[in-house]
């Protein structure tokens, strides 16, 4: 299965490609020589502990940070205007502005992104139990994450980058966000989900990337991994991180 997928990779256009990407913040290396590619129709788990480089990787893909060396391509484009139109990024902190209501935050997405889907956004609002009139900045943390996800998934983007969508919420809310991910995921697009909470979410992944101290340490099809090792992704993750 993986063999044939690898053979096809050369022909299928990759949604996201990193080639030998490195990034430093001051003296601290955030990414070291990372190469990866994500094809269409995949849900990819980007796994790593806090500070391992997950957010940096996503910010570079989203065009918010520039790599110090290496190349990044989004459907063949360098990060910039074209790539920003193709990517829907959910950052790990609020992307809406303090003054906005839920409705205004959605209108902002509608005004700037051609792939905004009003119908989908309406369904998501309902699913997330958000109302347009609520002030975004006075929502609880859990509700803010729901809004963030609504903003990201209301678009029909080619690539979704979700940075810790289940990070700061309680297990019940976590379940709800997971439901939304599966419910509103577009099958022909791809999604990269970063997380350090793996047990809850590993069943939605096709593939996982494990990143440790800025380096990519493992890239595997999830079912293959279970078949070969008889272990869950969560177990394997703990083993990889215990090594240090």
């Amino acid at each position: 299965m993986t063999g044939s997928a690898n053979r096809e990779e050369a022909e299928v256009e990759q949604l996201l490609e990193f080639e030998a990407v490195s990034k430093k913040y001051g003296n601290k290396a955030a990414l070291r020589d990372v190469s990866l590619s994500v094809g269409p129709g995949r849900i990819v788990g980007l796994l790593g502990s806090n500070g391992s480089g997950k957010t940096t990787l996503m910010r570079i893909a989203a065009g918010l940070d520039r790599p110090d060396s290496g190349t990044v391509r989004v459907l063949g484009h360098e990060p910039g205007r074209a790539s920003k139109a193709l990517i829907s990024f959910m950052p790990d902190r609020p992307q809406f502005e303090r003054w906005m209501t839920v409705g205004e935050a959605l209108d902002f997405q509608r005004d700037f992104f051609a792939d905004f889907d009003p119908d989908k956004s309406k369904r998501m609002l309902e699913f997330m139990k958000l109302s347009r009139g609520d002030k975004a900045s006075s929502l609880s943390k859990g509700m803010q994450e729901r809004l963030q996800l609504t903003l990201a998934l209301s678009r029909r983007a080619s690539l979704y980058l979700l940075d810790e969508p289940i990070g700061g919420v309680d297990p019940v809310a976590r379940g709800h966000i997971l439901d939304a991910l599966v419910e509103f995921y577009e099958e022909d697009s791809s999604m990269i989900v970063s997380t350090h909470l793996i047990a809850d979410i590993e069943r939605i992944f096709d593939e996982v990337l494990m990143i440790k101290e800025g380096s990519l340490v493992l890239r595997q099809e999830v079912e293959q991994l279970r078949m070969d090792s008889g272990k869950s992704v969560d177990q394997l993750f703990k083993e990889v991180y215990a090594e240090c």
């Binding site: 065009g63 918010l64 920003k84 990024f89 950052p91 902002f108 700037f112």
Partner: peptide, 11 residues
């Protein structure tokens, strides 16, 4: 400086 504004596809 704002993430939300800098994510929009504008030069």
């Amino acid at each position: 400086r704002s993430v939300g504004r800098r994510l929009v596809p504008l030069g």
